[in-house]
Design a protein around this nucleic acid. Structure first.
Length: 604
DNA sequence: AAAAAAC
């Protein structure tokens, strides 16, 4: 049955749609909540939703567009036009009505089927849920909505639910179990969860569902201008990550009438402008290009009801923070409380949490243990390698790997280096030594970057040399081996890098080349490995002891836990006096595999 | 000190 999705997907639109009389062509932008109604019902729908959709909404005195329901659970059961079926009768007519854009909507699932064939049976598409069973989870904040155990418990809407099935998501991951109800309740959220844990879906489902339900609850944007008015904004720190989020979101939004557009630098802006002109509900973007679009007055943020920052700790670090503040606080975006804001990252230093609190109102803090570490899905090795021996040592690893692999094919190997120059020269050296390698870094053209990633994913060049541009968030299936040719200076970056393997419950190998240049990393690395039940070489422990000035020791031992800690719970950071965490609850099956400094780097 | 992000 998996193989038949593409068929069923292609046939689905016409499935029940006898009355799918095509709308007059060249209509202007149609808001999502009007797209899926049968033509006859349009009038009623319009008046229904403009009457406030009976959502006990307070307009909160905000001068911009009236936004209803954001802080309320109300609308879910309040569809005036729908039947009272608990499963969300209001959506039953979805496939009948507005079809103009949908006819052209490329099937986003098609692409996957092709690439999966290249890589063998899609047996891996399923997530190994056993690996998720005992993941510890902690929430804090006022009045935290309880988690769900199944997708069916939440009325996401038929079209979205169908897409979830097409994605073969049978059961929500921990981050999804908690995030979806929190987000559907309209609450702001700060979440610590590793990529690969189903984060993207966790914030996309509520956004898509919410847009389908409420559409524009405010006044329609001025039609004459060529300005786009997205309802949701998803920001990420690299272009490739934005591309990936866009691809994923498109699958979830397929045939929901919700339009997802991506904008990032290094690519022709005209194509992106054209896409924006065709209408945008969810805009996925990198900060630089978004600022450009805002300055050109081609995008307005005044209709934004959902804001999501992926890799939020990176987005708020020194390099990015001013740009993010500008976008979120100094343009026309509605303030916290009017928009809903969700921040995600695998690591959340306290300092970053304090910055991030400016963007949030009465938020829920969520920490999900790292998938994989408890089940040793990633085997971590550290080898002492002098700077001058690194290349030949890498070659030995690659040779051994090829000898052990199936059909003498090279397993996908991701090699991280420190500098862009280093990436270029290592790529070249590998190639002239008979290893099919490519490289990705910020000095390459966007075309080269995307080509390299694609060539790696498909196995055409099974070795990818990368800078930290590829360290975060990228979901590359089948990466068997991550080599830290040059170790990073920050243990968080190490955590992000090795997270490119061992994904979705599969096993992976991470090898690091360590020498004197990395002595500052010795202590946190040794701690991390120990807490992940990895074998720590004696020489590394000695390095750790020598270089331990207590400086890299984070969390002071007990406070760190598995996925971060709400800084509001720490009195030294909560001088303000307001009780931000009154109803805080610990909800944890904490098993002990996640000790203090582990990944924690950051949460204090 | 390097990397990323607009033209």
């Amino acid at each position: 049955m998996p193989t038949s999705w593409s068929d069923s997907i292609e046939k689905a639109p016409t499935g029940g749609g006898t009355g799918a009389t095509s709308q007059p062509s060249r209509t202007s932008y149609v808001p999502p909540h009007l797209r899926n109604r049968p033509p006859s019902a349009d009038g009623a729908s319009v008046s229904a939703s403009h009457s406030g959709a009976a959502v006990g909404n307070s307009h909160q005195g905000y001068g911009g567009p009236a936004v209803s329901g954001i802080r309320s659970v109300g609308p879910w059961n309040d569809q005036s036009s729908g039947s009272s079926r608990p499963g969300g009768g209001a959506w039953n007519n979805r496939s009948n009505g507005w079809d103009r854009g949908r006819e052209r909507e490329a099937n986003p699932f098609q692409h996957d089927l092709h690439t999966e064939q290249d890589l063998g049976p899609p047996e891996n598409a399923g997530i190994n849920f056993d690996a998720y069973e005992d993941i510890p989870v902690e929430t804090s904040g006022r009045n935290v909505p309880p988690p769900v155990d199944t997708f069916a418990e939440i009325d996401l809407g038929e079209a979205l639910s169908l897409n979830i099935r097409r994605c073969k998501y049978v059961k929500p991951t921990p981050v999804q179990r908690y995030t979806i109800p929190i987000s559907m309740a309209g609450r702001d959220l700060m979440a610590c969860a590793q990529t690969g844990s189903g984060k993207t879906a966790a914030f996309c489902f509520p956004i898509i569902s919410g847009i389908m339900r409420n559409g524009h609850s405010g006044p329609r944007p001025p039609r004459a201008s060529r300005m786009a008015f997205p309802l949701a904004l998803i920001l990420s720190p690299t272009r490739e990550l934005s591309i990936q989020i866009h691809e994923e979101a498109r699958k979830f939004a397929y045939q929901t009438g919700v339009r997802v557009v991506v904008a990032y630098g290094g690519a022709p802006i005209n194509l992106q402008l054209r896409e924006l002109e065709r209408g945008v509900d969810i805009l996925v973007a990198t900060p630089g290009r978004l600022v450009d679009l805002l300055e050109r007055a081609r995008v307005s943020l005044q209709m934004i009801r959902y804001l999501a920052l992926d890799e939020a700790d990176r987005m708020l670090d020194m390099g990015f923070e001013p740009q993010i503040r500008r976008i979120v606080q100094q343009m026309d975006m509605p303030p916290p409380g009017v928009r809903q804001t969700m921040l995600f990252s695998a690591t959340f230093p306290k300092e970053i949490q304090r910055l991030a609190a400016d963007f949030l109102l009465d938020y829920v803090f969520l920490a999900v243990g790292r998938v994989g570490s408890s089940t040793d899905l990633i085997v971590q090795r550290v080898e002492y390698v002098h700077e001058t021996d690194k290349r030949s040592h890498l070659m030995d690893l690659l040779h051994a790997q090829r000898a052990n692999g199936d059909h003498r094919k090279q397993a996908l190997t991701l090699v991280f280096v420190e500098t862009k120059k280093g990436a270029d020269s290592l790529e070249h050296w590998l190639c002239i030594n008979g290893f099919p390698a490519t490289a990705i870094h910020g000095d390459r053209t966007q075309q080269e970057r995307e080509y390299a990633l694609r060539s790696f994913k498909t196995g055409k060049t099974p070795i990818l040399v990368a800078t930290d541009v590829a360290a975060r968030g990228l979901d590359i299936p089948h990466v068997a081996h991550v080599v830290n040719f040059d170790l990073p200076n920050d243990i968080d970056d190490y955590v992000h890098r090795i997270g490119r393997t061992g994904r979705a419950g599969k096993t992976g190998l991470a090898t690091a080349f360590f020498n004197e240049n990395n002595s500052s990393l010795a202590r946190p690395l040794a701690d991390l490995m120990q807490e992940a039940n990895q074998e720590v070489p004696a020489w590394l422990s000695r390095f750790a002891a020598q270089s331990s000035y207590g400086r890299n020791r984070r969390g002071g031992g007990s406070g760190a836990r598995f996925g971060g800690r709400d800084y509001r719970r720490d009195t030294s950071f909560n001088r303000g006096g307001t009780d931000l965490h009154g109803g805080g609850q610990i909800n944890s099956g904490y098993g002990g595999a996640y000790g203090s400094a582990a990944a924690t780097s950051a949460w204090d």
